[in-house]
Structure formats: C-alpha cells, structure tokens
Nucleic acid binder design. Structure first.
Lengths: 355, 355
DNA sequence: AACGCATGCTAACTCGGTTTAGCACGGTCG
DNA sequence: CGACCGTGCTAAACCGAGTTAGCATGCGTT
C-alpha cells in the first residue's frame, strides 16, 4: 500500500544514466545539452513505464517556484459570488498547472496577516486578495515580496498600486440608464443612492460608480432623475419604503433603478400592494442578479456580476505578473473592469406615452 | 522590495553558531541536545529580531510532511453547502497550522485523477474527498498512498474503507416523524419517497436513510404512512403535484414530510391555491434548511445540514489519520454521523383533533 | 599519565530535484 | 605529434531545512 513514490534517481538508475541527465531529458533540454537520442529515448520510456511524476516540492525548493497560488478572501461561504469567484480562479489555475490555497480572513486584519505569512512560508508564486463586495482596502505590507492581484477590491495605496480586477459598475450604470431611455422612459427614479452624485452610502464603490454611470447617460440625454433615495442599507425594507415614497409623490409612467436586487424585492412588494403591475405600470431595472431575481413574477431585469470571469482574470493577470518577475513578458498594471452581463427578464416595458 | 527571506543560515550566522545548532534550538530540542543557555538565548533573540520563519517547503522536503491538506470536491460553487463545508474545513485546518488546497472535479473522474495527482505531487499530508450531495461513490485508486477521508459521501469499497463523515439522515428522519407524532398527528404523508422503504430515488443516500428513520419511528408507534410519493426529482413542481394528489384524496388533519425544502415550496403553493393554511390545516416538516425556508410564510420547519461541522470534523479526523500514520495515536475508522440541526419555524402545529 | 566522562557544539549527510562547470573520448588539423 | 574541437555525458554544488554521528575540550579519577 504505502508504496514509495518513484523519484528521478529511480528513473535514472533504471535507464542507466545519471540523475542530471534524466532531469535534462525530462525537462526537454536534452537536445540542447547534447544528450544522445538513444539515451533520451531510454529515459522517456523508463519514466513513462514507472509512472514518474516530479516532486513539485523539491523542484520548488530549487527553482523558487511552487506552481501554487494563494487565494485570500474575506469570505468564502456567505454568497454565491464567493463560490463562483473561487470556481473561476480554480479553473483558470488548473488549466495552467497551478493549485490554489484558499484562505478566509473574515475581515480580520490579524487573521489576514497570518494567512499571508502561511502562504509565504509555503513559497506560493503569487497571491490573490479578494473581497466579496467591491470596496476600497489598504494593501497589507509584505505583499511586495510576492506577485499579487486585487480581486473585487480597490487598493488605497496609490504609490504602489496592485493590478486589480473589478466588475465595471459604471458601465453597468450607463447601460441601465440607456436601457430605460431606449424604452422611452423619462421619469426615472433611483433607489439606493442619489439623486446627486455625492449622495452614496459611504465606502461602497458599487454605489458610487453605478450612480455616476446613470447620471452621465441621463445628463447626456437631457433627462433629470425624478427622485433619488439614499438608504442606510440595501435591504427589501428600504426598497419598500422608498417605493412607497415614490408612489405617494404621484406621477405615472415611472421607471425605477434599484441599486441591488434586494431593494427591488421591496419595490415589487410595495407596487403589488398598491395594485400596480410590473412592468406595465412601473419598469424596474436592477443590479446583482440575485438567485431570487429569476423567481420573481415578472422576472427581474438586472445586471449580474461576472463572477467566474472575475476569478479567472485575477488568476490570469497574476500569472502574467509572475512571468514578468521571471523576466518574460510585460507586467500588467492598473484596473481591469469586466462588463456586467445584463439578464433581460420581464421587468422593463416600453413606455406607452412616449412624448 | 523584493527582499530575500530570512533563512536559518542567516539566523545562525548572526547568532554566531552553526545552522544545525540554530535548528535544534528553534525546534525546542536545544536542551535535550545540550546547547548552552547562552547560545539558545542568542539564537532565539536573533530569530525574533530578524523575523525568521522556517520555510515549510524545505522542511517538507526533509520531513515528508508539508502542513498542507487537499480538499477535492465535485462542486465548490453551486450550493451554500459547498461554501460552508469549505469554510468549516478551512477554519479547522487553520487552527492546526495547516493550509488547504481546494480542487473541483465537476464530477469528472479524469479531472479528479488529475487533481489527486497534482496534490500528491505537492506532498500534501492528507486528502478530503467531498461530495456536495450525500451519495455512494467509488474511491479512486492511489488514494491509499496518503491519508484520506470521505466527506458527505459513502465509499463503495468495503475492503479498504476510508474514514467517513456524513450528516445523520436516519436520525433526522426519526426526529421528523417523532416531531409530528408528538404534535398529535396520525395522518402523515411523505413526499419524495415511500410509502415503503424500497421506494426511494436510486443513488440517494439521503432519501433512503430519511425514509428508514421515518418508517422506523412510525412503525414503533403503530402508525402507517397514509401516502408516499416517490418523485423523479425533488423540485417544487414535484412537491406541488404530490400535494395536489394528497388533497384530491381528501382526508383532513394531514401532516406532510417533504424530503427537501424545494418540494415543500411546491407543497406550500398547492395548499395556498387550495385555500388551506399552513400549519393550521396542514403541518409540514422538511429537510435541508434551504436559504429560502426562512422566507416562506409561515417559516418552514426543517432539518438543516450541519455544514461547517461536517467540514471541521473531516479535517479533524483526517489529521488523526495523519498522526496515526506517523505512529502517534489510534487511527480513526468507520462512519461518523453528525446530527442535523432542527430549525423550528412555523410550519408544524399541534393537531387539534387529538384522538 | 592515562583514562573516563560529561559538556557543547559542528561536520556531513539527507530529502528530490535543477544547474553549472567541466571531464573523457575520439577525431581533425596544423 | 600535439593542439584543438565537438560530442555526450556526469560530478558537484545548490535550494533550506532536519538529523546523526562524532569531535574537541575540560574536568575528575585511578
């Protein structure tokens, strides 16, 4: 049972060569270093026959690289996002022969330090620092020692910025506004922030950027936000309350942009109570593509987060940084923004009283 | 920036001793091997001052252990369960100084082999083989080479069984039945399997065990299942259809055990349409504690899966196996069943017409 | 003076690979 | 005949720790 692993020395012995020779052959540098065809063939055959697999730990000790990345996140379990982010990262890593260490900080900086140390102790080739909701964060010291990428978080250190991958919230804001304009809507309300660009919940990048995108497009079309509703939190109850206010103010032919789907749930509830129908009376477009968005009747039209894509790109960019440090290729830098996919369902209707 | 790590040799040099001496001191075997107090003190001070951390890769090469475990799952992202299982495992591992490699097989045996190989190449000390829904599975060859534990899955190889951690489905079945009996119910229906023990969806351990537990308790109380509804799948539509059949058959004072919460959603819907109220007309108890179970009105009383506990225990047992292989302690074996926590909400009422 | 013994440390090897420098051999050329 | 060169390989060092065997030194005995 507990059979010993086949080592390079085993292969070399059985092939009648020295272990450096076997190493050269198996790393493809055989011809370059003038190992005879015959010897190369023998080594290859023996290696295949014995099922030789190089010990990555040992190789890592010599080469400094371990074919291993660290993925440190504030949360791994509480949201669908977390799982998909990890899934994307896992797949991208596996495609390139890398394995991923996963760590969870629970937002605790001390724990984060411990995890980063534990990763460095294990000679990881690079580290992804992920956050489950897009936010600004400081970058812990000591990360300079190893390639690193920020995922779904924006770094605050502007002198030593890390490459960063985030969803393109501003673009999604623009598209949400354009979607409503194109459907003929002119009476547009915003729930979650606004009506002016400075009225956003503190610390949320998503809120700021979504609002900025919305306002930009509306301004360009000469349309003003009818009302904006800054909320403490983005929960159904807040959406409900804001929608009640909108309805109480009267109007008609309204469209609402909710800043996340839970706000939209509350809006649906308030509209239903008021005897109004989505979308014929009120159109709604939202953000996040919550699993429940598809359960609502009518289905909620919403901009989803490109979860797996984010995870994938983080790994891809990280590996580019790794290669750049090794001297091959250009080091990526700056912020990469990934488009948020629109899930068109049934909550937006063409406005009937087009002026 | 790219500062070199502090090595044992650095510490030794600065402390004016040889590296073996430093190694002995730092591994706590200094006194045992008669290193003078003075020398020990100097080494400790220098190590602390330089912030020395041993390179685990190197240590692993020598000692064969890497303070690293592998967690291979068929899925990491599609369910809450997956995330929580991982979270529990992560925490337990971190508490003991271990890091976790995560891998996702997507149910593909070839991919599973690749991942296991990749883990073995990295000298992991042990491997957790997890499944996201409890089921039987064959254990891949080659796992004998390294300690391993099955998580939320039952192995099919009975000659070389792996230690296993699963939720205690049969116990939950018993408790569900007892819950209804204690509330005075005698007209009990089962949706998802039954009415007899052999009528379960193929391959689902959960179905078989839940049903067995239910039938055992009912039989002991001299109560027969009024009707059982074996379904192809456990989806809302199936729950809806089965509930319609129950209502069409007439009766009154019914109680329903649904085999998962999605079946219960369908049951709620059918009851609502029929103008019946939960729980005053029909009581429902279910399994899984789906995130939506708390959103239903009334809240669904359901047995949850002990997600994090499962992950934790898997790591703990795995590390016991590791220690046992190293010669310390007893090797655990057999199947450990973790109790499923009951979430009491509002879907079960005391039966008014108690005979 | 020779021996034994405890003390305090280190040389040398090990793990499994990679890398560099260079040896041995045969043939060619001046 | 010796210098030179290309061929085909290997010895030896290296990565950073852990481990074992044993060497000095000083002290007390016989």
């Amino acid at each position: 049972m507990k059979q010993r692993r086949v080592t390079l020395a085993d292969v070399a012995r059985r092939a009648g060569v020295s272990s450096p020779t076997a190493s050269l052959v198996l790393s493809g540098r055989g011809s370059e270093l003038r190992i005879s065809e015959a010897a190369q063939q023998r080594v290859q055959e023996v290696a295949a026959h014995l099922g030789y697999r190089p010990n990555i730990v040992s190789r890592g000790l010599r080469k400094g690289s371990s074919l291993t990345l660290g993925f440190v996140s504030d949360t791994v379990a509480t949201s669908q996002l977390a799982g998909d982010l990890i899934k994307g990262a896992l797949e991208a890593a596996h495609d390139r022969g890398f394995m991923l260490f996963i760590g969870e900080t629970e937002g605790d900086p001390a724990l984060e330090r411990q995890l980063l140390d534990a990763l460095l102790d294990r000679q990881v080739d690079g580290i992804i620092l992920a956050s489950m909701f897009t936010r600004s964060r400081s970058v812990p010291a000591g990360l300079g020692a190893v390639p690193a990428v920020l995922l779904n978080a924006l770094g605050e250190d502007l002198d030593a910025p890390l490459p960063t991958v985030v969803p393109d919230e501003m673009d999604a804001g623009r598209r949400a506004a354009r979607l409503l304009l194109d459907a003929g809507h002119r009476r547009i309300h915003v729930i979650g922030a606004g009506p002016t660009a400075d009225l956003v919940p503190p610390g949320t990048v998503a809120g700021r950027d979504r609002l900025a995108g919305i306002l930009e497009v509306l301004a360009a079309a000469g349309v003003q936000v009818v009302s904006g509703h800054l909320c403490d939190e983005w929960l159904p109850a807040n959406g409900y309350a804001a929608t009640r206010r909108i309805l109480d103010a009267g109007g008609g032919q309204d469209a609402i942009i909710t800043f996340n789907d839970r706000l939209a749930f509350g809006a649906y509830q308030a509209l239903q109570e008021a005897g109004l129908a989505v979308p014929s009376d009120v159109s709604i477009v939202s953000f996040d593509d919550h699993p429940l968005a598809d359960w609502l009747r009518p289905g909620l039209t919403t901009f989803g987060l490109p979860h797996e894509q984010l995870g994938r790109r983080a790994v891809e960019i990280l590996l580019e940084v790794v290669r750049a440090r090794a001297g091959t290729g250009e080091a990526p830098s700056g912020v990469e923004r990934l488009p948020m996919p629109l899930r068109t369902r049934g909550s937006v209707a063409t406005c009937s009283t087009r002026p």
